[in-house]
Amino acid sequence: MKTILVPTDFSENAFVAAAYACALAEASKQKVQLLHVYIALYSGFGEEGNSVKQIKLAETESAAAMKSLLESLSNQFPGVDIEGECIKGFMIDVVTNKLKKNENSLIVMGTKGVTNIAESILGSTTYEVIKKSPVPVLVVPIDTPDFSFKRVGFFTAYDDHELDALMTFQQAINLKPHLSMLHFYKENDSTPDKELSRWQRKVETAFPDWPVSCKTIPVDKVDINAVTQETKADGLDLLVFARPHKSFFEKIFRPSLTKAIANYPTVPSLFIKT
């Protein structure tokens, strides 16, 4: 049984992400591993006893907060196997070491979303994890309503590597919601109807038992507002983005768009490295 890894700092944002991860684990029959990484700050000029006290205090507070979180989630999701761990160190290093064990299907992290334009709950860590993680990273905004997984939007550039991303998505989630393949093109360009038909046939051939639809969207400017508008118009529960060496966003989007979506998503968003 695969495990969903959930880094947490015990904030409200992180709790929403953890609850989402548990609901997803329940639906896809996976386990949940909560992870808190703490740093005990102390001065090298202080007494050695004070340094030890600071470390012990951080350990004690982290353990107590983790116990409380585990109790809350276990009561809410009694059928899900949920574990928690607190480790001293740096988030990126600890997460990277965890992923080396090849037990995790994906990582779930939280952000404040559009209701509060501020840094994500773990600062720039969320984006750094997205860039470095070999497994998909699912970012959950704080204003996410009850778990829903009926309609998934996949932003496509009609590249074959995206089929690998879809396979990774299917293996990680183990569910088959309706898949809406979305392609942006500039309003002044010709409608890519032939490419759309070819791509839809290719996706349907690769995933014959997965309900799929394809749609082209003319836009004046490809930015986070266009993504948000289409998300609402199509009633999407989740967005999926493939991130190859030279991604869709790096071809036609501003380089900062991936980071913007990661920090301020309107709905849960999954980033897959291919």
Results as ranks from 00 to 15, higher is better:
residue 139 V to P: 01
residue 27 A to W: 06
residue 57 L to G: 07
residue 10 F to L: 08
residue 17 A to T: 07
residue 30 Q to P: 07
residue 257 L to C: 06
residue 87 I to Q: 12
residue 255 P to G: 06
residue 174 N to M: 08
residue 46 G to M: 13
residue 139 V to A: 01
residue 88 K to M: 08
residue 236 L to W: 10
residue 99 L to Y: 10
residue 172 A to Y: 03
residue 56 K to A: 15
residue 145 P to D: 08
residue 172 A to V: 02
residue 106 L to V: 04
residue 17 A to W: 07
residue 23 A to T: 04
residue 57 L to P: 03
residue 183 H to W: 09
residue 244 P to R: 12
residue 99 L to D: 12
residue 129 V to A: 07
residue 161 H to D: 11
residue 168 T to V: 15
residue 225 N to M: 11
residue 30 Q to M: 14
residue 240 V to M: 05
residue 244 P to V: 06
residue 49 G to Y: 13
residue 39 I to H: 14
residue 161 H to W: 08
residue 196 L to R: 05
residue 221 K to Q: 12
residue 236 L to S: 11
residue 189 D to H: 05
residue 204 E to M: 09
residue 80 V to Y: 07
residue 265 P to A: 05
residue 3 T to V: 15
residue 245 H to C: 07
residue 34 L to C: 05
residue 229 Q to A: 13
residue 196 L to T: 02
residue 123 G to D: 07
residue 105 S to F: 01
residue 258 T to L: 09
residue 20 Y to D: 02
residue 99 L to F: 09
residue 71 E to W: 06
residue 247 S to Y: 06
residue 93 D to I: 12
residue 54 Q to H: 13
residue 156 T to N: 10
residue 88 K to R: 08
residue 252 I to C: 07
residue 135 V to L: 13
residue 187 E to L: 04
residue 183 H to R: 11
residue 158 Y to P: 02
residue 134 P to D: 06
residue 17 A to V: 07
residue 248 F to Q: 08
residue 213 S to A: 11
residue 61 E to V: 15
residue 144 T to N: 00
residue 212 V to P: 04
residue 36 H to Q: 03
residue 201 R to P: 00
residue 34 L to Q: 06
residue 152 V to D: 08
residue 255 P to F: 03
residue 75 N to F: 10
residue 97 N to E: 15
residue 15 F to K: 15
residue 92 I to R: 10
residue 218 P to K: 00
residue 36 H to E: 04
residue 38 Y to Q: 00
residue 180 S to R: 11
residue 165 A to V: 04
residue 104 N to Y: 13
residue 38 Y to K: 00
residue 218 P to T: 00
residue 186 K to V: 00
residue 205 T to E: 12
residue 200 Q to C: 13
residue 214 C to V: 05
residue 68 S to G: 06
residue 179 L to G: 08
residue 2 K to R: 12
residue 142 I to M: 14
residue 241 F to T: 01
residue 268 P to D: 02
residue 166 L to V: 12
residue 58 A to C: 08
residue 56 K to Q: 15
residue 28 S to N: 09
residue 16 V to C: 11
residue 218 P to F: 00
residue 93 D to T: 15
residue 193 D to E: 14
residue 137 V to S: 01
residue 161 H to G: 05
residue 176 K to A: 04
residue 107 I to Q: 00
residue 65 A to K: 15
residue 248 F to H: 14
residue 64 A to C: 07
residue 85 E to F: 09
residue 184 F to S: 01
residue 143 D to K: 10
residue 104 N to P: 01
residue 190 S to T: 14
residue 142 I to P: 02
residue 85 E to H: 12
residue 273 K to P: 02
residue 63 A to D: 07
residue 112 K to F: 05
residue 37 V to W: 01
residue 59 E to A: 09
residue 159 D to K: 15
residue 39 I to A: 09
residue 189 D to P: 00
residue 103 E to F: 11
residue 113 G to A: 10
residue 153 G to P: 01
residue 247 S to D: 07
residue 171 Q to W: 05
residue 155 F to P: 03
residue 44 G to D: 09
residue 75 N to T: 13
residue 18 A to T: 13
